[in-house]
Simulated scan of single mutants.
Amino acid sequence: MTTSDVNNDRTFAKLDTDECWRLVGVHGVGRIVFTGDTYTRVVPTIYDAVGGTAYFRAPVFGELARRADGNCVSLNVDNLEHSDLTGWSVQMSGTAHRVQDAATVAWLWSFGRPQTWYPGRQTQWIALEVDQVRGQRVRD
C-alpha cells in the first residue's frame, strides 16, 4: 500500500481550541520542543495541563530549564490508532518560565508525577503559558 492509497480515504479536520484542550486532558504524555543555538530539541515528557498552562519538570541546571526559561516552547500531544492510522494531534505553544512561587510549587508537587525522559534529577517545575493551540483529527 502506498502513502497515496492510505491518504485517499482519510479526512483531516482542524480542531478548535476547546476540543484541543479536552483531548490533551489534565495529565498526559507528550513532547516538549525547544531550540538551542543551532538545533531544535524534542524531549518526551509527562505533563499536567491546568487553566491554560502546561506544567512539566526539568533538571534545575539542565539544558531544558535554561533553554525553556523565558522562551517559546511547544508541547505536542498525539493519540494515534495504529490499526487504521486515525487519531489526533495537538500542538500548544507559548512562553515557558521556571515556577518560583512556593504555593504553586507545592500545589504542583501534590500531583507528584510529571517528569521528562531528559537525564538528571528533575526538581525544577516549568510552566508553559499557552497562547497558541492548533490541532487536527484524521479519520477514515
Rank of each mutant, 00 (worst) to 15 (best):
M1Q: 15
M1E: 15
M1R: 14
T2S: 14
T3Q: 09
S4Y: 11
V6K: 12
N8Q: 15
N8P: 09
D18R: 15
C20L: 07
G25I: 00
V26D: 05
H27M: 10
G30R: 01
R31S: 05
I32A: 02
I32R: 03
V33A: 06
G36I: 08
D37F: 12
Y39C: 10
T40E: 02
R41W: 13
R41Y: 11
I46Y: 15
Y47T: 00
P59F: 04
V60G: 07
L64P: 00
L64F: 01
A65G: 02
R66W: 01
R66N: 01
G70F: 11
C72S: 14
C72W: 13
V73E: 08
V73L: 07
S74V: 04
L75H: 01
N76A: 14
V77F: 06
D78H: 07
N79C: 08
N79K: 02
H82C: 12
S83W: 13
L85T: 10
V90R: 01
Q91S: 12
G94K: 04
H97F: 08
D101K: 03
A102L: 04
V105T: 13
A106G: 08
W109T: 09
G112P: 02
G112A: 06
Q115D: 08
Q115A: 06
P119A: 08
T123Q: 13
Q124V: 02
I126G: 07
L128D: 09
L128Q: 07
E129H: 15
R137C: 00
D140C: 12
D140P: 14
D140W: 11
